[in-house]
Computed example of a mutant assay.
Amino acid sequence: MAEILNDQQADEAVTKLSGWTRDGVAIERTAKLPSFPAAIAAVDKVAELAEAADHHPDIDIRWRTVTFRLSTHSAGGLTKKDFALASQIDEVLGGM
């Protein structure tokens, strides 16, 4: 099982990400995409990355606004897996 990061480690790790905030045992980022199809395309790319990492975010889609929420549920908190996938999500969103 992945090791849970302590508060200091999680707070430090979230500062290295673009647009992410920490909410207790999760990190979250909301992005506005140019259109609904672009939002769906971003979610599709993230889904492929998440499946490959066997780590699946909570995703909320509202027209062209997408919110990603990450936490390692099996560990009960934030782990390095969350921050690794968040970094990949940043790359996807940066390419949209």
Rank of each mutant, 00 (worst) to 15 (best):
M1H: 00
A2S: 12
A2D: 10
A2Q: 13
I4Q: 00
L5M: 11
N6K: 03
D7R: 10
Q9M: 02
Q9I: 04
Q9L: 00
A10W: 02
D11C: 08
D11P: 15
E12A: 11
E12N: 01
V14T: 06
T15K: 15
L17C: 10
S18G: 13
G19Y: 04
T21A: 12
T21D: 12
D23R: 15
G24L: 09
G24M: 06
G24Y: 05
G24N: 12
A26Y: 06
A26D: 00
I27R: 07
T30E: 13
T30W: 06
T30R: 12
K32D: 02
L33Y: 01
P34C: 04
P34A: 12
F36I: 08
F36L: 09
F36D: 06
F36N: 00
F36P: 09
A38H: 07
A38P: 10
A39H: 06
A39G: 04
A41F: 09
A42R: 10
A42P: 07
V43K: 14
V43W: 13
D44P: 06
V46L: 05
A47T: 10
E48W: 08
E48C: 13
E51I: 10
E51K: 14
A52R: 11
A53C: 06
D54V: 08
D54H: 11
D54W: 11
H56M: 03
D58T: 10
D58V: 13
I61T: 02
R62G: 02
V66I: 07
F68H: 08
F68G: 08
R69G: 04
S71E: 00
T72I: 03
S74R: 11
S74E: 13
A75S: 03
G77R: 03
G77T: 01
T79Y: 01
K80Y: 11
D82V: 04
F83M: 04
A86P: 15
A86S: 04
A86W: 07
A86R: 06
S87P: 06
E91M: 13
G94M: 07
M96F: 14
